[in-house]
Design a protein around this nucleic acid. Structure first.
Lengths: 347, 347
DNA sequence: AACAGTATTGCAAATGTTTTCATAAGGGCT
DNA sequence: AGCCCTTATGAAAACATTTGCAATACTGTT
């Protein structure tokens, strides 16, 4: 006898012998009600199985109680921590998460952002600072609280909270230089439309240049966001530039691919080859040997971004101006890097 | 001079010189319009920067164009593939994903499901078959299309699409038995409120029993969903049951922890110890040595679940009855398992 | 030229809630 | 007992859209 009819606020009101307004208040402003009435309404809600309709609520009050998150991908654990902690933060504050991915395609990013805005998310977080003009325009036109996470720039167009990716690249390269490495290879994702990768790459190049090293194209390879693709291209790289003693990778997934390639070639890590990643993804510290990497504070970024958006939503007066929060990065020296081998490649 | 005022359908109508109804039709049923009018409206939409309000649409038409996904956690890559492909499927069909996590707490699952239903998701997917009575009741009362993913049971209370976890456990154990192992340890997550873990564990026990092996509590250890916790408890296990020649793990993350523990103890894999996981998470095939595991078809499950829900939403008449889809699992024998070492532990 | 039929479009009702405003019910004071 | 103040509740408007129905314009027919 299951009817498709859904219980509405009016049904509850009838059951409790009060008006719809009172039921609404019982749900949203319980303090306004006489305790007795409130209990009666709560009882009626339970009895009828009423579930309040956020869509209707959103329509009236201009608040949907949802927050959007746009990430490039959800594959592997690249953004797992960010997602986890961002969700944790916003859930605790009563919001529900709308998730969208764009696969590193900024045109697609615009489209999914639009979909999120159609659902009237109260706020939205995007990964990185590279976005199309349309995307920025849309955010401004809809003037919805927005924040860029992961990256940081003092001149960012929208508020941001993240780390200095250029410094991360520098730090990774300097670590290898300090260990005596001079022949250093690079495995990075495509840098177009990806400020994180671009900045990291730039940081590496800068550090190498400062040490008088000019990496040749032959020492570089472009890896996509998958361990197996990275492994394949690193096999290539290690074969054609066999004198490399170290590899700096654009992120930990690529580094894991590099490790797999080294292992397959019988190249010992770190004895024959040092490998450093960037990101410190979940699990990076637990593989064997544990990955040396640059830690980006994903947990903090996720939490802070969630709280920032919630604060902006709660207090629209604070919305103007751009907040920029720079979080510290850290070299996590583990098992995949070591001093350059003494036996330098004889000519 | 940015006003907080949001462009509505009426503004577009005014700009295009038509009625609001026509604008609505241009967005939702373009075929109904005279091509000329349609173009004029589309132009006005572009010019005004109108973004349609799904909340208002949901209120009227009873369709929110959102689908919910409830997973235990988003940490590591455990549900990354499921999430990725589920999202892919539903996005392609025009839905936006609402994501919620409950941290393996079924009471919390009820709460987050409720939140999803408040947002009037048109359909919802939950991981596994273990849910509270309240959860089932809520799904029935709201009669929203729902599907359990990951697990499969011919007697499931709601539609399901997934694999036979008991068979997965059996397969893992039988693989080790076929390699001659007799001293087999178990590392599993808590099985309360988790049918996947429970079934897998049951399957392992069944296969062992069929081979005349009765695992003692000393050969078992409970691992949480983190590589480092798993590593810690496996260190323990391997220390106190040093004669184990193989380990079957409740999932790939736990297996990775076991691998890390073995490595730290100088136990060679697979020479001294075989390790088999369950799941075949992204990356499991790329670690070194590559993990032997039971593949669950995450991609298929994600896609199929998304399409199933979309179909139910599109055609409510098909909703009655319970659909159950069993997908094949597969042993992926890679590098972490091998024949038991000839040098049997002398008494 | 009138008619029937079809293709477009507008009007207005309906959707489920929140909130403003108004009213009613108590309670303490003089 | 009458008055004022506070607290609690209800009535109705408002929110942004969709859609059934009606009206209009247009096409081809006879």
């Amino acid at each position: 006898m299951k009817s498709a009819y859904r219980i509405g606020i009016a049904d509850v009101a009838r059951a409790a012998g009060v008006s719809a307004a009172t039921v609404s208040r019982a749900v949203n402003h319980p303090a306004l009600l006489n305790p007795t009435t409130r209990r009666r309404v709560e009882e009626a809600i339970r009895a009828t199985g009423y579930v309040r309709n956020r869509a209707a609520q959103a329509m009236h009050g201009r608040r949907s109680a949802t927050i959007g998150l746009v990430v490039p991908t959800v594959n592997y654990s690249i953004f797992a921590e960010l997602l986890q902690h961002f969700n944790e933060a916003v859930s605790e504050l009563g919001f529900t998460l709308l998730l969208a991915t764009h696969g590193y395609d900024l045109e697609e990013e615009y489209r999914v952002l639009r979909k999120l805005l159609e659902h009237r998310v109260d706020g939205v977080a995007l990964v990185g600072l590279d976005h199309t003009e349309d995307t920025f325009g849309l955010l401004e036109a809809q003037d919805v609280p927005a924040i860029a996470v992961w990256s940081h720039s003092p001149t960012s167009r929208i508020s941001c909270i993240g780390a200095d990716n250029r410094a991360a690249g520098r730090l990774a390269a300097e670590h290898l230089l300090a260990l005596g490495h001079r022949r250093i290879g690079l495995a990075f994702p495509p840098v177009d439309d990806n400020d994180r990768a671009r900045d990291r790459h730039g940081g590496v190049a800068e550090a190498l240049a400062a040490a008088g090293i000019e990496p040749t194209p032959a020492d570089s390879v472009e890896a996509l966001y998958s361990i197996s693709h990275s492994k394949a291209v690193c096999l290539d790289l290690l074969a054609r530039a066999a004198d490399l003693t170290a590899l700096v990778c654009g992120n930990d997934i690529i580094a894991q691919g590099a490790l797999a390639a080294a292992s397959q070639l019988g190249v010992r890590v770190p004895a024959d080859l040092s490998v450093v990643g960037i990101g410190d993804f979940p699990g990076s510290g637990d593989i064997v040997p544990a990955l040396t990497t640059i830690r980006l504070p994903a947990r903090q970024i996720g939490h802070a971004a969630g709280r920032y958006l919630a604060a902006m939503i709660a207090d629209p007066s604070r919305r103007q101006g751009t907040t920029r929060d720079l979080l510290a990065i850290e070299l996590i020296a583990r098992g995949t890097t070591g001093r350059v081998r003494a036996t330098a490649a004889a000519p």
